[in-house]
Amino acid sequence: MTLAATAGLLTAGPTTRAAAETHGFLSPTGVEIAFLLVGLVTFGAALVTVTTRQLVHAALWLVVTLGGLAVEYLLLTAEFIAWVQVLIYVGSVVVLLLFGLMLTRAPIGRSPDADSGNRWGALTVAVAAAAALVWVVVDAFRTTWIDLDGPAAGSTEATGASLFQNWVLPFEALSVLLLAALVGAIVLSRKAKAAAAIATESTPAARSEEDRIEKDRSDKGRSEKDGIEKDGIEKEGTR
C-alpha cells in the first residue's frame, strides 16, 4: 500500500461524516499529527521489513518499526509499556533474531529467494484483510475519542499497582511459562548426535536434567556455542 493510499483512506473517514464535532476533525490536535507522522514511519518500516531482499536489513528495519511503536505508546501516555517495548523487543528479541540469522548462515546482502512463490496469494489475502479490517474499524469508531488529558494512563505507578493487585496470578503463571520456554529452548537446541545417543539409551523422561548435561559434557568436545540467551539469563554454552 502506498503512502498516498494510506492517507486517502484516513481522510476518507472524516469527509464522509456530516455531523458537527466537538473535537473538530478539520483541526487535529498536535498529538494526532505526531501520531500520524510516526505511524507513517512505522508502517513504512514494516513494509520494508516484509519486502526487502536483504535479511539483515529486514531485522534492522524491524528495529525501526518496533521503535516507532514505542514512540506511539509514549504518545498514548502508556509510558511503562513503551520502555518495556524498547527493552524486550528492541533489546532482546531483535538480538535473538540476529543471532538466528547468523547461526543459520543467512546470506549477507541480497538473497534472490527471500520471497516464496506464494507472494501473490499472500498479497491478495493481506490486501483483502486490510481493506476489511480498516473499513470495519473506521466505521465502528467514527465518533470515538481518547481523552489524553490528565495523568498518564500507563504510568509505572498505575501499571505496577494494577499488575500486582489484580493480575498477580497471571503474572506468576507467566513466569512459569517463561521457565518452560527456557527449558524447552535449551532442550531443542541440543546437538543432533548427542540427542540421538541419549534417546536410544533409555526413556528420556526418566533422566533428570543434570544427567543429560553431564552426559553431553563427557561426550565429544564442542566448540560451537549452542546456548541461547533468555531474558537476560545467560546459559553456559561451552561443553
Binding site: L9, E72, L76, T144, W145
Partner: peptide
C-alpha cells in the same frame, strides 16, 4: 485523539 488512528495503524 481520535481512536481511529491507532486502530487503523494497528
Amino acid at each position: 485523539m481520535h481512536l481511529a488512528y491507532p486502530a487503523v495503524l494497528s
